[in-house]
Amino acid sequence: MSFLSRAMAVVMLALPTFALADTFVFTAIPDADESRLQQRFGKVADYLSEQLNVDVQYIPVKSYAAAITAFRNDQVQLAWFGGLSGVQARRLVPDSEALAQGYEDQFFKSYFIAHESAGMEAGESLSDALKGKTFTFGSKGSTSGRLMPEFYLREQFGAAPEEIFSRVGFSGDHSRTIAQVQSGAYQIGAVNFAVWEKELEEGKIDTNKVKVIWTTPTYPDYQWTIRGDVDARFGAGFKEKVRQVLLNMNDPDLLASFPRKSFVPASNDDYGPIESTAKAIGLLD
């Protein structure tokens, strides 16, 4: 964008800035390691651009809500959403469609982790010993850090988290959840299993201080979702083309940004359980 059009953005604050109609824009928030997004996903953009023969750009966002907003007002046409945020986005944008999910996302799970001071042991189910402890979720809009853990807590105890625990916080992020439980700031936390495994591998976790006490059943999570009007804008069959290009992505360097082993096909129906769970706990109307 030229100096002039930037100046226009200042002068005509009230008017929307100019469209770059021929650019295909996507966004992604990985579940682990959000640093250097622009560099890492810039490479993904280059790959997509090369394969799709259109100009592709990546914009970094800070939260699922921001990703949904950008998707809804057509600032991005393709997004790597979490399970819940994908459902929310598709409800807001008619005809949008889940294209592909990560291999791991077919059977995703969350861990409940506990600080040693909580005196908890790993068990087959959530035990009553949880009651009265302090507890933190991850981000408010996260599937693995909020939605599914809350669902299983409600199922087990028949009560809202605030009634089970003495305090319920939202750390904002899976890495934060681990750090806060490891330091004892919160006694219990719910965390995305992939992030836990990754940090364990990297030696960031002291298993004397914090350990996994329960694992949720599996559920579908992250997926690529595309707007329904892309065919009209970028040519017939564009949506299918994007799906194929995503499924064919096999460069480990690109996949490590997500981080996923590979992508497999997905459909809106795969996320029916997520939607009904969200409705059950009052996150969706």
């Binding site: 964008m1 100096f3 930037r6 100046a7 953005a9 200042v10 008017l15 929307p16 800035t17 100019f18 469209a19 770059l20 109609a21 650019t23 824009v25 750009q57 914009i59 007002n73 057509d74 600032q75 991005v76 046409q77």
Partner: peptide, 16 residues
């Protein structure tokens, strides 16, 4: 400062 402002990527829906 005007020159440094980030460019707006892909936003087109002003009717929102």
């Amino acid at each position: 400062a005007i020159w440094l402002l980030p460019e707006t990527v892909g936003f087109s829906n002003g009717g929102y």
